[in-house]
């Protein structure tokens, strides 16, 4: 049965007078992995920030399982089941790896579920290290672990492959699908790398100048036309 989890209805986002997203409507179903693709400056990160609440849309609505969250604070959205991995990872550099994961746990709790370290064994080895001293790939895993710690239903991943070497990108794709299957997660991932998007996503959405210009399930993706939209 298809159950709609996240719904975005004519969302418009502006930075001051300049419009970053004209109007985006999309819907994400339970268990789906949706890749939002587009070149730099086409609104991917803006869309992700609007979804987690770091930017407030000028107009439009965002609903999570039928509940409107358009104006909710980020931490309120996390409590309702959204989780966010920002572009550039943004781990807390002077906190230890373990403390970074703990920041994602529900308020007042400190016990990190064993499952999280099972997905990312390297974090368990390094749990007493300061997060700022980890490599880029490890920080990416840590940022995902921190997001998973809140026990989310929908995970928002903003450009997870940025600045990470190709072999680790492949590994990341495998890990994401494994997590999705085990936890029953829904994932919205913004991406520039088409091969990565095709290896994880069930559906691909292409943004151009703040609007959706192409949308198709992975099976029917016309790689050539999507590739054209993603090249300069």
């Amino acid at each position: 049965m298809v159950e709609e989890l996240l719904n975005v209805q004519s969302v418009r986002v502006c930075y001051g007078e300049s419009e970053a997203i004209a109007s985006i409507s999309m819907s994400v179903n339970k268990g789906e992995i949706v890749a939002v693709m587009g070149l730099n400056g086409m609104g991917k990160t803006t869309l992700m920030k609007a979804l987690i609440g770091l930017l407030m849309p000028r107009s439009g609505t965002v609903t999570l399982s039928g509940r409107e969250i358009t104006r909710a604070e980020p931490f309120e959205r996390v409590a309702l089941g959204l989780a966010y991995v920002p572009q550039g990872r943004m781990v807390f550099p002077t906190l230890t790896v373990e403390e970074n994961v703990q920041t994602g746990l529900p308020p007042g709790t400190r016990e990190v579920p064993a499952q999280i370290y099972r997905f990312f064994p390297v974090l368990l080895e390094m749990k007493k290290r300061r997060a700022g001293n980890l490599s880029g790939g490890q920080q990416q895993q840590l940022a995902i672990a921190r997001a998973l710690a809140s026990g989310p239903r929908v995970l928002l991943l903003d450009e997870p492959t940025e600045g990470i070497q190709p072999s680790i990108i492949k590994e990341l794709a495998v890990q994401l699908k494994q997590i999705r299957d085990e936890v029953g997660l829904t994932i919205v991932v913004s991406e520039q790398v088409l091969s990565f998007a095709l290896s994880v996503a069930d559906r691909i959405i292409v943004l151009n100048r703040g609007a959706i210009v192409h949308q198709s399930p992975r099976e029917g993706v016309d790689e050539e036309s999507v590739g054209k939209l993603l090249s300069i």
Partner: peptide, 23 residues
């Protein structure tokens, strides 16, 4: 304590701490 972790996370990066679920 968890409060201490929240404090230090908030001081390092306020928007990110909120997006991680901290009030």
């Amino acid at each position: 304590t968890r409060f201490g972790i929240d404090v230090r996370a908030t001081m390092q990066n306020r928007p990110m701490a909120s997006a991680a679920g901290i009030n």
